[in-house]
C-alpha cells in the first residue's frame, strides 16, 4: 500500500533527521582527527629535525670535551729560537694563544708520519731559523713541536705537518717573527 500524505511527510523528516545526525557524526570524527593530524605534522616538522641537530651538537661538544681532557686548554706558549743562545720568549696574550691552538689543531689533524724525520744530531749553529714551540696547558704535560721552515714537527707523536702559506704567515705573526 502506498503511504498517505502525512506518512510521506513524516518519513521525509525522519530520514532527513537521520541523515543530518549521520552527517554531524561524520563531521565530529573528522574534526577530532584534525588536531591529531596537526600534532603529528608539528612533531614531524619540529621534533624530529631538532633531535638530529641535538645529536650532532652533542657529538660536537663530546669531541671538544675529549680534546680538552686530553691536554687541557693552552695557558701559555713558550717559543725558543734554536741556534741563537738565550733567544726565547713567552706568548701570554689570550687571543694569540687561542689562534695558535687552533692552528696547531688543524695542523695536527692532517699530520702524518714523516718521510725524513728532523735530524736531532744537528749542532745548534746549524739550526738557525728553526724554532721550538712549547705549549703549556693549564693542566697536564706541555706539548712541544719543532718549526723547520714550513714544516711543523710534533715531538710527542713524531708526526709532521706542512703548513700552508697562510698558516706560515699567521704563525709568524703570532710568534712575532720577522717575515
Amino acid at each position: 500500500m502506498m503511504r498517505s500524505f502525512e506518512e510521506r511527510k513524516a518519513e521525509i523528516f525522519r530520514r532527513s533527521e537521520k541523515r543530518i545526525r549521520e552527517q554531524r557524526h561524520r563531521r565530529r570524527i573528522l574534526l577530532s582527527c584534525v588536531p591529531l593530524f596537526l600534532c603529528v605534522l608539528l612533531a614531524a616538522i619540529f621534533v624530529l629535525p631538532g633531535r638530529g641537530t641535538n645529536e650532532s651538537a652533542d657529538r660536537e661538544s663530546q669531541r671538544a670535551e675529549a680534546a680538552e681532557n686530553a691536554s687541557g686548554p693552552i695557558a701559555s706558549v713558550h717559543v725558543e729560537a734554536l741556534g741563537q743562545a738565550g733567544a726565547s720568549w713567552e706568548i701570554g696574550d689570550e687571543k694569540a694563544v687561542r689562534a695558535l691552538s687552533r692552528l696547531f689543531e688543524s695542523a695536527q689533524e692532517r699530520s702524518e708520519e714523516p718521510s725524513f724525520p728532523p735530524d736531532s744530531s744537528l749542532a745548534q749553529a746549524d739550526r738557525i731559523g728553526d724554532f721550538r714551540i712549547t705549549c703549556v696547558p693549564e693542566s697536564g704535560e706541555p706539548v712541544s713541536c719543532l718549526l723547520e721552515n714550513e714544516t711543523l714537527y710534533f715531538e710527542g707523536s713524531g708526526k709532521t705537518a706542512v703548513l700552508t702559506v697562510e698558516e706560515q704567515a699567521e704563525l709568524a705573526r703570532i710568534l712575532q717573527l720577522p717575515q
Binding site: 502506498m2 503511504r3 510521506r8 518519513e11 521525509i12 523528516f13 530520514r15 532527513s16 541523515r19 543530518i20 552527517q23
Partner: peptide, 14 residues
C-alpha cells in the same frame, strides 16, 4: 519509486 521520491525530498531538507 515512492521510496526514492522520499529520499529526493529529504535531500531538500538536509
Amino acid at each position: 519509486a515512492e521510496d526514492l521520491a522520499i529520499d529526493v525530498f529529504s535531500d531538500l531538507v538536509v
